[in-house]
């Protein structure tokens, strides 16, 4: 028994015509957490609209780039079970709900909503280079989280009313969590006499 309103799941299903995968857990205190995976990220706005009608509060947005699943060692299989079956295993690509390949290049965005004390986590999957519609027109509190996601990942959020940088300066290349940055460069600690030369040059001019 959850505290979610009657027909809550049905409305979520109706809002997402491409399909949703709902799982709900309720703890000993009677507090529920629902995970709502979207088959198609284009349904996000409609689901957001639906949650808004239940006075949901958008509390947090998490972006994540799941690593590619490790390749399983199939040596034993081949020995034990015959070649035909092993072949059937190999080309299988791990997919998210809705069919976004989980190969280490795709993203998942989790929108965490509070609905009267219970939590609804809407999960949208994005392939590499994919984009997703902004929730900021519906939820003002999506503004900062979406701007933050745009600057730390190569994720495009369309229709954001104010897509400026939030924490990182314009002079820094974006998608910092998608790139390997040498520590010395990141800490700006590389040793050179460039700064000294500039100081001396400035002193001469003065």
């Amino acid at each position: 028994m959850t505290r979610f309103p009657e027909n809550f799941e049905a409305s979520l299903n109706a809002a997402a015509p491409h399909g949703v995968n709902l799982t709900t857990t309720t703890d000993d205190h009677g507090v529920s957490v629902m995970w709502c995976e979207l088959a198609d990220r284009d349904d996000l706005s409609a689901v957001g609209e639906c949650l808004r009608s239940y006075h949901a509060r958008l509390a947090m947005v998490t972006a994540n780039k799941p690593p590619a699943p490790e390749e399983e060692e199939e040596e034993q299989d081949e020995e034990d079970e015959g070649a035909a079956e092993a072949e059937a295993h190999v080309p299988e690509q791990s997919m998210s709900f809705g069919g976004t390949p989980q190969d280490g290049t795709s993203y998942e965005l989790v929108y965490h909503f509070d609905v009267g004390g219970d939590y609804v986590n809407v999960v949208a999957f994005l392939p590499a280079g994919g984009s997703i519609a902004s929730l900021t027109p519906l939820f003002r509190s999506a503004d900062w989280p979406e701007r933050e996601i745009m600057e730390i990942y190569s994720v495009t959020i369309t229709n954001h009313p104010d897509p400026r940088r939030l924490f990182l300066d314009e002079s820094i290349d974006g998608a910092v969590l998608d790139r390997l940055i040498p520590f010395s460069q990141m800490a700006n600690a590389s040793t050179s006499d460039e700064l000294w030369a500039r100081v001396m040059a400035a002193a001469k001019e003065a």
Partner: peptide
């Protein structure tokens, strides 16, 4: 709010908080 996602590694795959 804390969101934690773990995998087979001892380090979390993602740890996010607001």
């Amino acid at each position: 709010v804390y969101y934690l996602k773990t995998n087979d590694n001892p380090e979390p795959e993602r740890l996010k908080w607001r």
